[in-house]
Design a protein around this nucleic acid. Structure first.
Lengths: 353, 353
DNA sequence: TCTGCTAGTGTTACCGCTAACAGCCGCCGG
DNA sequence: CCGGCGGCTGTTAGCGGTAACACTAGCAGA
């Protein structure tokens, strides 16, 4: 297209005279190479512990690198090697105790592998999730761990054609892009309902979060109502909240439900935090738990151990989910399409047995 | 050094014949450029919204990029532009409610700026912190936010010569590398002690975490004892824990202290979670709170709102700290060396007043 | 008509590092 | 004595973008 020759100008002064080795200049391999009298390639080999380098050379290089305070530039390294030791982790929130524990599981496995997790938070917003995924993929990570199976079409498409292992975690009720590691929340809800019914409770109410995009809470409720229906029951009442202190909201919602339905005999909470609030309320009111009224939550947060009475719950296998997801990314686990874990129901002291 | 000429071999086949546009191939600017019939540079300009591009060209390019599902390679972009939109955030833990809130503050400010936080967790281990910092710096972020003022010498040195803004958060009792945003924990401890003494309590015990590297908890305790000393008092007892459910540990430690010192009249906890456990214990025992015995924690976690009685505490300005730190990084705030915030004492219902 | 400017687009040379070799040297076996 | 091999080190050409220009065309003003 160009009809004439262009004579481009170098972007930068080729090199400043050596006498003034600008101390403000960011160090490169070349600096270490000059300081230690070997080629950049050899320095690179030493710093990555790759290839054969004689012991004396290695020493010299390490010495020089340390003295200069050289920090390698992974951007350049990643571009050249087409390899990035990052694993994207996309989760909805950090503030509810469940994802930090998943992170712990992920880190514990990744720690040995040279891979490093990078967290992105979506606040349960699908568009935000799409953006976060896009941003992460643009760094060409070695793998992605994403919470949930529900994503925007664009997000699914990006993940699918990224050419890296994708693990969707927490939930297995749906179609994974690649691999899924989690529990069936629908089944979890069903199991809890069956246990409650078996214990003889009949007037059951639900208390949960008002979050259209918390698909896992939704699926639990669906499974729960399904099992109720099978027993010829329906929820006698339900109450939702959003924002604020979960513990406090749990108290308030519980008070509201009890005021409306004095004869309710079971309260099923969508998470342990509001369940704990409800439990504190019931105890404060002097209600007979679990005789007259039973309670159950979901998650198995360790917080519960400190309560005066132990709330019935179901642990969500968070640590295992994180570990297995990381194992799949790290190639330590045979990648089945779905890896289902089975939560155990912990009856605690709030379901009569 | 080489005496002969080397004829290197290209790393990859120069180009596959166009007829088979390998669908597995990772897309580059060139693919979009070919699909839209303009130069790579123009595509780059369109995708970054930089420079003048005619509307029709812009449309064509966007169309092609969307159709192909192109995701830019930030690694290459960052290397070429010497610009990275990442901000490293190094914190000790995610599982204690305090750092998630700091993160919220950081994100809220960074969201508008194109900058993106990347979190690293150290588990209160100095060596781990050094590694995390090294890893992060190797990605050449635009800035770093690091919790605390205590680091290994190597970590300090790396941060100091990275040539980017460094903000140390949470604490200001010490010498920052660059900037510090936080509160004086020593002063916070002192203030709490003064309030307790003013309320007439005299037999005061301390309950906290057994963490040699939680410098902020240590400084609070130091300030606390300093103020006690000034009033001629000393701690009548102290108890430490590590690991496990904080709420439960709070109950257990409280029981232990009370068993050893039946006449103790105030319990100062190093954090709200164990304080809440202690409060639950005292209430369960039917103790007269705050008449016979007072309690106080630290942090102002929202959890407290749900308790039967409100624990006295001091909020740590977590949200503000996160916001201000991010503002410094984003260049929105005049970078003073230390930015001190002042926590407010919330007497709650557990200090008699 | 010529100049100067501006908007739009293309060209080239890197950014800092690593893959893939080439080259050198010393040693060993035949 | 020679070929081969293995250990160590160097050379070159990118990786996929972007900075900094060069260049063209179109148009306004002198």
């Amino acid at each position: 297209m160009a009809l004439t020759k262009t004579i481009p100008i170098p972007r930068r002064k080729p090199a400043v005279s050596k006498p003034t080795p600008d101390p403000r200049h960011t160090l490169t391999l070349r600096d270490v190479s000059e300081a230690s009298g070997v080629s950049e390639m050899t320095v690179s080999r030493v710093l990555r512990n790759r290839g054969d380098v004689s012991a004396p050379t290695r020493e010299k290089v390490l010495e020089a690198a340390r003295a200069l305070g050289y920090v390698p530039n992974k951007i350049a390294g990643a571009l050249a090697s087409q390899r990035v030791n990052l694993v994207g982790v996309v989760i909805p929130s950090l503030s509810n105790m469940v994802f930090p524990e998943v992170m712990t599981g992920i880190s514990s496995v990744l720690d040995g592998t040279g891979l490093q997790p990078v967290v992105g938070v979506t606040n349960y917003l699908p568009d935000r999730e799409e953006t976060v995924i896009y941003e992460m993929l643009s760094w060409r990570p070695s793998g992605m761990i994403v919470a949930g199976l529900e994503h925007t079409d664009a997000a699914r498409a990006m993940l699918a054609r990224a050419g890296i292992p994708i693990v969707e975690i927490m939930d297995i009720d749906g179609e994974p892009i690649n691999h899924a590691v989690g529990i069936s929340h629908r089944r979890a809800g069903r199991q809890m309902a069956e246990a409650i019914i078996a214990a003889g409770y009949r007037k059951i109410a639900f208390l949960g979060t008002q979050m259209p995009n918390d698909h896992r809470a939704r699926k639990r409720l669906e499974g729960f109502e399904e099992a109720l229906a099978k027993a010829g029951l329906t929820l006698v009442d339900r109450e939702f909240y959003s924002g604020g202190s979960a513990l406090l909201k749990g108290r308030e919602m519980t008070a509201a439900i009890l005021a409306r339905n004095p004869d309710v005999d079971f309260l099923y909470y969508s998470n342990d935090m509001i369940g704990a609030g409800g439990l504190l309320h019931c105890l404060a009111e002097g209600l007979d738990v679990p005789g007259k009224i039973g309670l159950a939550g979901f998650n198995g947060v360790e917080l519960l151990d400190g309560l005066p009475r132990k709330l019935a719950t179901m642990d969500a296998c968070r640590l295992e989910i994180g570990k297995h997801a990381a194992e799949v990314i790290a190639g330590k686990l045979i990648p089945a399409e779905k890896l289902e874990l089975f939560p155990t129901l912990q009856p605690g002291d709030t379901i009569r047995g």
